[in-house]
Design a protein around this nucleic acid. Structure first.
Length: 574
DNA sequence: GCCGTTTTCGGCCCGACTGTTTTCAGTCG
């Protein structure tokens, strides 16, 4: 059985949950959680590290004990510490921790006092009114538990970034109309441009919190007010999206913005540095004893502990703090660095517009060139192009380029990579194009070895330019296909071809960690809209966000090049 | 259980809100 990082992380989390219910040393519990987080954020299977003979105790939060357990799980698929805990406590007890309002202390009380260890027993006890009689519980807690059980508590549902953006943008507009509000900023994972967000964290500068909070909870999309005080409030919108609002004074704005942008593990790591310097960082500022030394801007907060400004997208505790200390932070690519887009569709296949309309829209978006890359014949559902139809399209594009336009169209195709790794159109046709995007649209279920071999072989075709949406996942819908991405990235370097970062909000594919790997290998990434309509060019901003999370600089991105330079790079792949 | 440019022992990030209390524990982010 293959053991992935997530499997080991889940073991550590369960150990932490059970120890917490037992009332064990909180720092020991935190150590397990830190270990789990390190594994989840590793971006590479720890098994690979182990097989390579790496010393995994060098990983943050992994000491001798956790390293031994990782080895044990990799070797046997089991962890004796967890097995032992499971014998002491019912395994399903940890499912109760996921209910809102139930933490370890209360779960422990439910178990010891009422012998409750699953949701069914909990629901029965709540209905019988037994819960509210326990010390530390009351009628409200009991009612809340029942609510959560009946609502089937779809906790953990995350919203795609682009979807959250729609809710965020209108809510920000609304909050700005509140009295005394001078600034509104969305922080949290939204500001870090994570591909999905669990909730929105919104920060408001205002002198008096009370009236802002009142205005906030009165927003007409609010379905449920979870909590509401003088400086913060939490609500659930009708869409199910949770929004947390914090009101701060101007003098604390930088500290609060920094604090609520996260990530959690980044903040913890930075606070540890502050602590060593005798400073305390909280959402109100940076303090030496009782004296405030910084807090008005984020730059000030970083400067107080001797760091340069770290862009939000990097704040994941994946090496950005060490890079900042060493003066090695990347200068991240920005929205207006993009000169063109190398992946778009027209109504010749499954797009909605003619290439002329797409060209005009791309130009309006500030682009200097656009590649027309319709689907190939194999993708019949998308009305894919065969050789004849493609050649006809090429002539029309040549005519367009001969005319007087301030955008250049590139001739391309999104050609299917067939199961054996061959391409869906003949080489003599592909040779006539400016670029060839290869894409996997079928047989997602192939084994890792076969899927990887298929893609490597496609890349070896001399006409191959760029691998579209390399992982193949659809966020919240379809997992990526099983491939050895590190191998594909290395192969792209050896072969001299490129990878796409597909900016469509459903895809955002390459993953951020793979962008980082590609950058280290020196493989250029093309940030493409995969536009099927004129509105889709706006999605490029989400691609830029993802690229920034992947540490990409302007020079790491293929389509930041001016057209003449791009043409040379494209020609160089052949 | 992890960790170290003040430490191999003695620390470990920090504050708001709620409910059940009557001074605070538990939970949450």
């Amino acid at each position: 059985m293959p053991v992935h990082n997530e499997d080991i992380a889940a073991v550590f989390d369960e150990i932490a949950d059970l120890l917490e219910i037992e009332g064990d040393n909180p720092f020991r519990i935190r150590a397990y959680r830190n270990g789990a987080r390190t594994l989840r954020e590793l971006g590479q299977d720890v098994r690979t590290r182990v097989e390579r003979g790496d010393d995994i105790t060098r990983l943050p939060g992994i000491g001798k004990n956790l390293a031994d357990k990782i080895h044990e799980i990799l070797d046997s698929g089991h962890c004796r510490t967890l097995d032992k805990l499971r014998r002491k406590l019912p395994a399903d007890l940890t499912t109760l921790l996921k209910l809102p309002g139930l933490g370890p202390r209360r779960v422990q009380a439910l178990y010891h006092e009422l012998d409750i260890h699953n949701r069914e027993q909990l629901e029965r006890a709540a209905r019988d009114g037994l819960i509210q009689r326990l010390p530390g519980f009351g009628a409200k807690t009991e009612a809340r538990i029942l609510d959560a059980l009946q609502a089937h508590a779809d906790t953990g549902k995350r919203f795609k970034l682009a979807v959250a953006a729609r809710y965020a943008e209108s809510l920000v507009g609304y909050l700005k109309t509140a009295e005394g509000v001078s600034q509104v900023q969305v922080a949290g994972s939204y500001r870090r441009c994570r591909e999905t967000v669990g909730d929105l964290d919104i920060l408001v500068i205002a002198r008096h919190g009370h009236s802002v909070i009142e205005h906030f909870v009165a927003y007409d999309e609010v379905e449920n007010v979870l909590s509401s005080g003088t400086t913060r409030a939490s609500v659930i919108l009708r869409s199910g999206l949770q929004v947390d609002l914090r009101v701060v004074a101007k003098i604390s704005y930088g500290a609060a913005l920094y604090y609520f942008t996260g990530s959690r593990s980044h903040n913890i790591a930075v606070r540890r540095i502050a602590r060593r310097k005798g400073l305390k960082i909280n959402e109100y500022g940076v303090f030496r004893g009782k004296k405030r030394v910084a807090g008005k801007t984020e730059e000030e907060v970083f400067a107080s502990i001797g760091l340069p400004f770290i862009p939000p997208e990097l704040r994941e505790n994946r090496g950005e703090i060490e890079a900042a200390q060493a003066g090695l932070l990347p200068t991240l690519v920005e929205n207006n660095d993009l000169r063109g887009d190398l992946h778009s569709h027209t109504n010749a296949s499954d797009g909605h517009e003619s290439f002329q309309v797409m060209a005009t829209a791309a130009r309006k978006h500030g682009l200097e060139y656009l590649a027309i890359t319709d689907h190939s014949r194999r993708l019949t559902v998308a009305h894919g192009l065969d050789s004849t139809r493609l050649l006809a399209q090429l002539e029309l594009i040549d005519d367009f380029n001969a005319g007087d336009h301030d955008i250049t169209l590139l001739k391309g195709i999104e050609v299917d990579i067939l199961e054996d790794g061959s391409l869906d159109l003949p080489d003599n046709i592909l040779a006539q194009l400016d670029l060839v995007i290869g894409a996997v649209h079928s047989r997602f279920e192939l084994t890792r070895a076969k899927q990887t071999r298929r893609i490597l072989r496609a890349m070896d075709n001399p006409n191959f330019t760029l691998l579209a949406h390399p992982g193949g996942r659809l966020i919240n819908q379809r997992p990526p296909y099983d491939v050895d991405m590190a191998r594909i990235i290395r192969h792209a370097r050896e072969r001299g071809c490129f990878l796409e970062l597909n900016a469509h909000p459903e895809r955002l594919d390459l993953l951020d960690t793979h962008c980082q790997l590609a950058r280290e290998e020196g493989v250029l990434i093309s940030i493409n809209s995969d536009a099927h309509s004129i509105a889709d060019f706006d999605n490029l901003r989400f691609g830029i966000g993802q690229a920034r999370r992947g540490w990409l600089e302007k020079q790491d991105v293929l389509n930041t090049r001016p057209l003449s330079e791009l043409r040379k790079l494209l020609a160089g792949t052949r």
